[in-house]
Design a protein around this nucleic acid. Sequence first.
DNA 1: CTAGGATCCTGTCAGC
DNA 2: TGCTGACAGGATCCTA
Length: 287
Amino acid sequence: MPELPEVETIRRGLRKLVIDKVVVKITTFEPKSFVGDVKKAEQRRVMGLARRGKALIIQLEGGVNLLVHLRMTGQLVYVGTRRWGGGHPTDDFLNSLPSAHTRVMVEFDDAGRLFFNDQRKFGFIKVLSDDEVEQDSFIKKLGTDALAEEFGWRDLKRQFLRHPKSKVKAALLDQTVVAGVGNIYADESLFFAGVHPERLVGSLNDKEIEKIWRGVRETMQKSIDVGGSSLKNYVKADGKKGNYLELFAQVFHKEGLRCPKCGAEIVKIRSVGRGTHICPNCQKLGK
DNA sequence: CTAGGATCCTGTCAGC
DNA sequence: TGCTGACAGGATCCTA
């Protein structure tokens, strides 16, 4: 689930809670979810929080990092003087922790605790030196960050040129093309641009590429502005469960509802092996 | 080199 | 109620 905006929301939220705190102990509940020696990270102060695409990097003193990837179902929940969480929205935002899904627990010197919960065990935390982060096979291959200042529509065009026979949705999901786009923002960006996800990249004109690029930027920024998928959006003021997609999504999980642009019915199709949401009137294949 | 499909794992939901 | 199969907001590995 968590894509760039969710990870960025976590980075901003967590920053206020753990910077300058010392990691005193790391407990792992699932070996698959933690790579490296916990002792390398213990007794080190948190210096900063960075992000590369969908990866979060907790920077510790002495050039040591905790590289966190939430993949499909990962979430981070901080429990201390206050409670805060972000990532895949589940009741573990609210439950007593550790829970059955807690894979790693990080304890700080002020008694705050950070829980990495992950139902499907696809996510992980790795202890890496600064050099090792740069050499990491995933990090090394990442394209320009979708939110980076220097990422312009011509950069997207240049990357697209490498994949002329790909479907445009597949190209957007490719982290080496642009870092941070997942299934939600791919669908939202293509709806924004009025481009069908199965159009071949080579068939797109400059105007369409520019609109897709704008769609990526605007939908992600809007999601960050409203706080993405976080504990704050999980429970509404009246105590009922909230759905953060309501806050910015136009088509994602909106099948059966009306297209906000033309009023046609939004449909869900299967494309590139993923559930894909389009307005069949605004996004035509033959166009 | 690229493109497409299977795969890791568990929880949930629709349909019978 | 209980079972079964499909599928899930990601990335990698394998094949062609």
